[in-house]
């Protein structure tokens, strides 16, 4: 299967890069994600339970990141296994471009599916994977946009603080700190993990979607 796509995310590139590397953000944006653990410096392990129609299955996956050029591009390779449902493996090249204050994310995926997934779902792999990718980026984008709003709020607090007399300085610092914390929580800060995840998870999820057909 070959798939490529492009998403516009209305936040700056560094912010997107950071978020894509934050396991917490990813865990929240991937539906059914049960766990997400770092494995070594460039690996990540995850378990995702997905329920689509009458089918519920757990996909276990591993991904590895390579060719890292922060905050611009990298390559992900990975594999996911859904037991009797079959398996998916492959790779994706992800590129982040700046466009004004926004980020244009482009990706190219080449993946193979096997077992029941290939047997009954090959025809639907492309559209199912695309839907999964859309769902992920929808959630991801929304999450980051909420982060931006928090930052705007923080900026106004900072501005207000600057106009306050010196003896109130500690209050300002606390407010700004709180705003930053908010931001961090929103945008995430982990060393890496994100784009890595969506690719294989897209594969895993489309796999599950297709499973319905076998029942």
């Amino acid at each position: 299967m070959d798939m490529s796509g492009e998403y516009r995310i209305p936040v700056p590139r560094e912010r997107v890069w950071e978020a894509l590397n934050d396991p917490e953000v990813l865990k929240d944006c991937i539906p059914g994600c049960e766990s997400l653990e770092k494995e070594g410096d460039t690996g990540l392990k995850a378990a995702v339970v997905a329920k689509i129609g009458p089918v519920k299955a757990k996909f276990n996956g591993k991904v590895t990141l390579s060719d890292l050029v922060p905050p611009e591009s990298y390559r992900i390779t990975g594999e996911g296994s859904g037991g009797v449902a079959g398996f998916a493996n492959g790779g994706a090249d992800v590129h982040l471009a700046e466009d004004g204050g926004e980020t244009v994310l482009t990706y190219k995926v080449h993946a193979k599916v096997g077992g029941k997934l290939a047997q009954v779902g090959s025809r639907l792999v492309d559209s199912a994977a695309r839907k999964m990718a859309d769902d992920f980026f929808g959630a991801f984008s929304e999450r980051l946009t909420r982060g931006e709003e928090a930052e705007v709020e923080a900026e106004s607090l900072r501005e207000r603080a600057e106009h306050i007399v010196e003896d109130a300085a500690h209050v300002v610092e606390e407010t700004a700190h709180a705003a930053e914390e908010q931001l961090e929580a929103a945008a995430g800060k982990g060393s890496f993990g994100g784009p890595v995840m969506w690719a294989w998870i897209a594969l895993a999820l489309m796999a599950l979607g297709l499973l319905m057909m076998t029942q």
């Binding site: 290939a118 047997q119 090959s122």
Partner: peptide
Amino acid sequence: YDEESGQLITGSMMD
């Protein structure tokens, strides 16, 4: 069969 992976891709009455 898929040339690359050897998977049977016409494995149901759908395909």
